[in-house]
Nucleic acid binder design. Sequence first.
DNA 1: CGCATTTCCTGGAGGC
DNA 2: TGCCTCCAGGAAATGC
Length: 272
Amino acid sequence: MPELPEVETIVRELRTRLTRRRVESATVERADVVHGDPRPLDALIAGRLVKTVDRRAKRIIIELTRNLRLVFHLGMSGRLTIDDHDNPIAKHTHVRIGFGREIGELRFRDPRRFGGVWVLTDAGEYVGKRLGRLGPEPLELAAKGFRRILASRRQIKALLLDQSKIAGLGNIYTDEALYAAGVHPMTPADALVEPIAGQLLRAIKQTLRRAIRARGSTLMDYRTVDGQTGSFQRQHRVYGRTGQPCRKCGAPIERIIVAGRSTCFCPRCQPL
DNA sequence: CGCATTTCCTGGAGGC
DNA sequence: TGCCTCCAGGAAATGC
């Protein structure tokens, strides 16, 4: 399940391989995963060059010439890969964007279809409707901004998962960061006063940076653009370790439901 | 408006 | 082996 580190890994690879390349064709196999400008994608983007590849929270933004952006969201099971044109097309491949023969084909595959691509031809629509409701990037967040976010009675886990408050964390990195800071996931956010709030922000940033360095966590679906797995799952302290001993204190890791999500934590290192 | 709950979807796991 | 049920979860939609 791609969160910020997985998406950042994908963006870096796409940037290296696609910047300044020319789109030659586009094929939509499933129209209902494509949103935004309703005109046929092939006619719309063929001939344009890739100007930039960037990330906002968990979204991948491919900017083409003449003010057109393709915004990919991978949802749960989405993958973006670059394949040779004649590679077999995997099941649930919904969109293919062809580049030159020596580059290959960008393929968007998403079995569960929680993801999609937004074709944005107007900057206003892009900022206002799609990305306007996203909170700040956690890696760019200062202590003051974080304290403002914490001014709520909600459980800290629910708050960190709320993309309109802070954008990019998902279930894995929320659990890992809370463990690293020694904070129980059900703690009311406004109970986190200094120095704990600062510790938590540092834990969030450190967890994300380490995960990016390991090219993300592969549990099931996630792969990098060239099909490799990430390796951060080997450094997980709580996520997916239910019943196994805490690496700090030896107590068994527990799994509970918080904010409707399965939540792993150490009852001894993260007391309420 | 803010926040909690429900809903979408498929593949894989586990029970029998 | 085959069939069934359950579960994973990002975020939009819905319901207070």
